[in-house]
């Protein structure tokens, strides 16, 4: 049965507490040994592991911070590059547009110049054609005039000898034509 032993307490007062120098010494030695053994066997190791782990966690956090910073810097650099690329692209596009515009203007100017040249050339050709036609008409007219005069005067005229006369007639003819 559960029961505490019933013992007669021989000592009284403070003596009843059972203070014993040898027991006291035994507890002191026991506790001292326990401290020494726990320190050697356990505390050093456990605190060492806790220190190592906290150091590792600190290192990992610092590493994570460093990686995050680097990633952020890389992202910023990438965004800067992207922005620069976009700006460069826009600049190139603008330059291309400007070049195209310039080229178009140049081509238009050139086309206009060529057209003007063509027109001038055509005019020149027309003028030459007209002059040639006029020359031919004049020649034909001279021949006709000579033939007509021969018929009128019944004699043959020397075209070279009467060149002055023919030119005079033609000039009169031109003068008449100009009046007309």
């Amino acid at each position: 049965m559960l029961s505490a032993p019933r013992l007669a307490e021989e000592a009284s007062g403070i003596g009843a507490l059972g203070i014993d120098p040898w027991s006291l010494l035994a507890y002191l030695v026991t506790f001292g040994l326990l401290v020494a053994l726990l320190y050697t066997l356990a505390y050093k190791r456990i605190l060492g592991v806790l220190d190592a782990r906290s150091g590792r966690i600190r290192d990992s956090l610092e590493e994570a911070d460093r990686v995050r910073r680097e990633a952020q810097e890389q992202q910023e650099a990438m965004q800067r590059t992207l922005l620069e690329g976009r700006e460069e692209g826009q600049r190139v596009l603008a330059e291309a547009r400007e070049a195209a515009e310039r080229y178009r203007e140049q081509q238009a100017t050139q086309a206009r110049a060529e057209a003007a040249q063509l027109i001038d050339r055509a005019r020149e050709e027309i003028r030459q054609e007209r002059d040639a036609a006029l020359e031919q008409v004049r020649s034909e007219f001279a021949s006709l005039a000579v033939s007509a005069a021969e018929r009128i005067i019944h004699r043959s005229l020397d075209p070279d000898a009467h060149r002055d006369l023919i030119d005079e007639v033609l000039a009169e003819g031109d003068a008449r034509a100009g009046r007309n």
Partner: peptide, 20 residues
């Protein structure tokens, strides 16, 4: 069961030489 008795001093189990 008997009533438990309170006794303050520890009890001797054995002795090693003069040490209890």
């Amino acid at each position: 069961i008997d009533a438990p008795a309170v006794h303050l001093a520890p009890q001797k189990i054995f002795a090693i030489g003069g040490f209890t």
